[in-house]
């Protein structure tokens, strides 16, 4: 399937907050209650429509464990959007947000759209972080905020799609240089601007023209 744009996302946050489950819910529409520890990086992809345009989301799901932090850092590069996830039933995952945010800001491109996600909203009885706290943190740091449940799928679509909408708006405003792949945005094969150099990019990105495969 061809697409107008490809956006690269990264999902970050402490271990066990539900990053892999959010990805699985978004790409496969299913929930897996027991999920193996993510060691490396996992990839997911899905096509969405914004403003009548096909947009492919390529999502990199990272390991949350502290031991993998240095490896995770290298994946911020070339991401247009990030989902920063905490678990509303575990206060410490909220407390660590500042560190994650610093990491993200330091290692990503400055225009990266960051969406703050309070996950596990279905477990309201065990809630340790109030919704207002999440909102306040997001406001303070200029993030978009949303509470989700990877289990019930509540707000999961919205989280990914709203992030894409923000990125799309930034493109319309000319904030993103869409010809620079380091920004995490790629123009689809049929939508390439007239300059042939636009899509080819540099660094020999493998399969840059492989829009046919989804």
């Amino acid at each position: 399937m061809s697409y107008a744009y490809l956006f690269k996302y990264i999902i970050i946050g402490d271990t066990g907050v539900g990053k892999s489950c959010l990805l699985l819910q978004f790409t496969d529409k299913r929930f897996q209650p027991v999920h193996d520890l993510t060691i490396g990086v996992e990839f997911g992809a899905r096509m969405i429509t914004i403003d009548g345009k096909q947009i492919k989301l390529q999502i990199w799901d990272t390991a949350g464990q502290e031991a993998f932090r240095s490896i995770t850092r290298s994946y911020y590069r070339g991401a247009a959007g990030a989902l920063l996830v905490y678990d509303i039933t575990r206060r410490e995952t909220f407390n660590h947000l500042t560190t994650w945010l610093e990491d993200a800001r330091q290692h990503s491109n400055s225009n990266m759209v960051i969406m703050l996600i309070g996950n596990k909203s279905d477990l309201d009885s065990r809630r340790e972080v109030r919704r207002e706290e999440g909102e306040a943190f997001a406001r303070e740091h200029g993030l978009v905020f949303m509470e989700t449940s990877a289990k019930t799928a509540a707000n999961v679509e919205e989280a990914f799609i709203n992030t894409a909408k923000e990125i799309y708006e930034k493109i319309q405003e000319g904030v993103f240089d869409i010809n620079n792949e380091a920004n995490g945005i790629k123009i689809g094969p049929q939508h390439s601007p007239t300059s042939p150099g636009g899509l080819a990019g540099n660094g020999g990105q493998g399969g840059a023209q492989g829009g046919g495969c989804c």
Binding site: V41, Y75, R77, A182, G203, G204, G207
Partner: peptide, 17 residues
């Protein structure tokens, strides 16, 4: 095959396990 393509990112060089 899609993941194979994504993993061949010469700029990020993701470590695949």
């Amino acid at each position: 095959s899609e993941e194979t393509q994504v993993s061949a990112d010469h700029r990020v060089r993701p470590i695949i396990v």
